[in-house]
Design a protein around this nucleic acid. Sequence first.
DNA 1: CACGTAATGAAAATGAATTTCAAAATCAAT
DNA 2: ATTGATTTTGAAATTCATTTTCATTACGTG
Lengths: 141, 141
Amino acid sequence: MNKEKNFQGYLHDKGLKSTRQRDDIASFFLQKDKHFSVEELYHEIKKIEPQIGYATVYRTLKLLVESGLATKCQFSEGFTRFEPVHEGKHHDHLVCLKCGKIIEFKNDKIEQLQIEVARELDFELTNHKCVLYGYCSRCKD
Amino acid sequence: MNKEKNFQGYLHDKGLKSTRQRDDIASFFLQKDKHFSVEELYHEIKKIEPQIGYATVYRTLKLLVESGLATKCQFSEGFTRFEPVHEGKHHDHLVCLKCGKIIEFKNDKIEQLQIEVARELDFELTNHKCVLYGYCSRCKD
DNA sequence: CACGTAATGAAAATGAATTTCAAAATCAAT
DNA sequence: ATTGATTTTGAAATTCATTTTCATTACGTG
């Protein structure tokens, strides 16, 4: 897959080594469409790579973020989630405060307005995060 | 001041006690317009109340948030900041990745669009946070 | 002012994330 | 393929923010 090649290229460019553990983590993670906690990912990888340690999962996720193939998400849960980047499509999130469900949304008008806000305040924008909290259709009532 | 009365009222309604430490923390914090880390606030309060412990600062901030007089801010710094709520005016933040400067902004169109997004996805919105990251006028170049 | 309850603060505990370090793995150059 | 310099791994230790514990002290209602 293309993204895995990107990761290999990133490692090579940085003089880092390709290892069985890194490759297993990256190829598992990158083909999913999910907001993983490190714990969740660790347990999934454990099935493929039983000797894996948390440190390696943390370290590989850091590399994936640096390479642009993953993003960090902080939904006020007290820990960080990591999401594979698909097709460079940016999106924001709605988080259900009851069941924890995460819904993605994209709104070009909001993005555009954010750019305008930054320009008005003479700010050079690099990225943003926007999280809406509430109750999903199933949990509200 | 009005907000301090609100805090007293909140404590009383919940059957909690007014104490010297709580009152000192609340009155100092509420009259500022700043995004405090717990450490910063702790050191400021220490000047007024030398025996204060971190636990009391944490506990009082939690009460201030519950009472609606403070909000939590998480700017990806690895710790939480707390901001006094002034006049019920909601706003979002721009954070400079170099100098750490925090700029507030308010954009009603963005707020309105967020409400629409939530409605379209059948989500009952309670709150949101939107943080723009980049470089401020002084740090960009 | 006495009593029941709540709050305080020092220290210990927790939990996420990072670092350490000895052993193992990678990979470029032979 | 073998070597050898260098990086990576993983278990355990460490860090750091935050929470909890618990004996002592303070509050405030009756």
